[in-house]
Design a protein around this nucleic acid. Structure first.
Length: 276
DNA sequence: CAAGTTACCTGACGGC
DNA sequence: TGCCGTCAGGTAACTT
C-alpha cells in the first residue's frame, strides 16, 4: 500500500484529529507485526499524555507527545490508520487501538502484518536520525537529494538505477510504483546501470521523482487494492499511472507496447522507445 | 563488501 | 467448488 505519498496523505489526514488529544487507553489484539508490539511500553509512555504533533520521515509516521516521547509507525505493505468511535466493533486485522479523550480511537489495521510500531522515550527522540533513521537517506524534497549527491553515490556501483532509487539509504520513500513512474518521466530505462548516467540524467531523475511524488500527494495517493486515507476515502493517482501495471498497453506518449521485467525481485514497467 | 536471495504474512486471482 | 501456484505498495537479515 503505502509509499511516501500515501504516508504523507495519512499523516495530513490524522494530524487534525490527533493534535491536542490525550491518550486514555491502548489495546492490542496480541498479534505480532514485523516486530513485537511493545504494548506495556506504549501504555507507560503514552497514556495520560497529550499529542503535540504528527509528522512524517521517509515512510514512517511520527507522533509526538507532550512528555517528549514519540510514537513511530511504519505501515509495511498493507498497514493503515483510521479513526472510529471507540464504541464500534474493531475490524479484522485491527491490531492496535489508541483510545482518545473524545471517545474516538485511532486504529492500526494491517492484514499482512509487515508494519512496525516503535516508541521512543523522551531522552531517545532527539538523536533519532543517528539511531532509528541511521540508514535512511535524504527526503526527496530536501535540498540534500541533489543530482550531485546521486552522481557521487553512484560511483563504483554496479546497480540498476531502479534498484538504486528504491534503496532506503539512497533516498527515502521511493517504492516500486513511483520508481517506475519517475523513471518513465525522466526517460531513463529501469535497467540502466547507475555508472552510465550523466549528471544531467540525474538532474532529470531528481526533478521527475519530486514531480511524481508531489502529484501523487495532491491526488490523495494511489489506491491499488485497499489504500484509504484517514477518512476511509480512496486516492486517485492510479488513474495517472503511465506505465505501472500497464504491460502490453500502448505507451501514452508513443504508442509502443509497455514492457515489464523483474529487477531486484520487483516488477518494473517501462516504454522501450521513450526510455533509454 | 557489494549484490543477490529469502523471510516475514494474508488475500486476490487465474488455471485446472 | 476448491486446491495450487503466483503475485502484491516494504524492509532487514541472510548468503554468495
Amino acid at each position: 500500500m503505502p509509499e511516501l505519498p500515501e504516508v504523507e496523505v495519512i499523516c495530513r489526514g490524522i494530524q487534525p484529529h490527533l493534535v491536542d488529544r490525550t491518550v486514555t487507553a491502548i489495546f492490542h489484539n496480541g498479534k505480532q507485526l514485523r516486530l513485537p508490539v511493545p504494548v506495556d511500553l506504549l501504555r507507560r509512555e503514552m497514556i495520560g499524555c497529550r499529542i503535540t504533533a504528527v509528522t512524517r520521515r521517509a515512510k514512517y509516521l511520527q507522533i509526538s507527545l507532550d512528555s517528549g516521547a514519540m510514537l513511530i509507525i511504519h505501515l509495511g505493505m498493507t498497514g493503515n490508520l483510521g479513526f472510529f468511535s471507540s464504541e464500534s466493533e474493531p475490524a479484522k486485522h485491527d491490531h492496535v487501538r489508541w483510545t482518545l479523550d473524545n471517545d474516538t480511537e485511532l486504529r492500526y489495521n494491517d492484514s499482512r502484518r509487515f508494519g512496525a510500531i516503535h516508541i521512543l522515550k523522551s531522552q531517545e527522540t532527539q538523536d533519532r536520525e543517528e539511531t532509528v533513521f541511521k540508514t535512511t537517506g535524504p527526503e526527496p524534497f530536501h535540498a540534500a537529494f541533489s543530482p550531485e549527491y546521486l552522481h557521487q553515490l553512484a560511483k563504483g556501483k554496479n546497480l540498476t538505477v531502479k534498484v538504486f532509487i528504491m534503496t532506503t539509504q539512497v533516498v527515502a520513500g521511493v517504492g516500486n510504483i513511483y520508481a517506475s513512474e519517475s523513471l518513465f518521466r525522466a526517460g531513463i530505462l529501469p535497467a540502466r546501470k547507475v555508472q552510465t548516467i550523466s549528471k544531467k540524467g540525474w538532474g532529470k531523475l531528481v526533478a521527475a521523482i519530486r514531480e511524481i511524488l508531489q502529484q501523487a500527494i495532491d491526488c490523495g495517493g494511489s489506491t491499488i487494492s485497499d489504500f484509504l486515507n484517514a477518512r476511509q476515502e480512496k486516492g486517485y493517482f492510479q488513474a495517472n499511472f503511465k506505465v505501472y501495471g500497464r504491460q502490453g498497453e500502448p505507451c501514452p506518449t508513443c504508442q509502443e507496447k509497455i514492457e515489464n521485467s523483474r529487477l531486484g525481485g520487483r516488477s518494473s514497467y517501462f516504454c522501450p522507445r521513450c526510455q533509454s
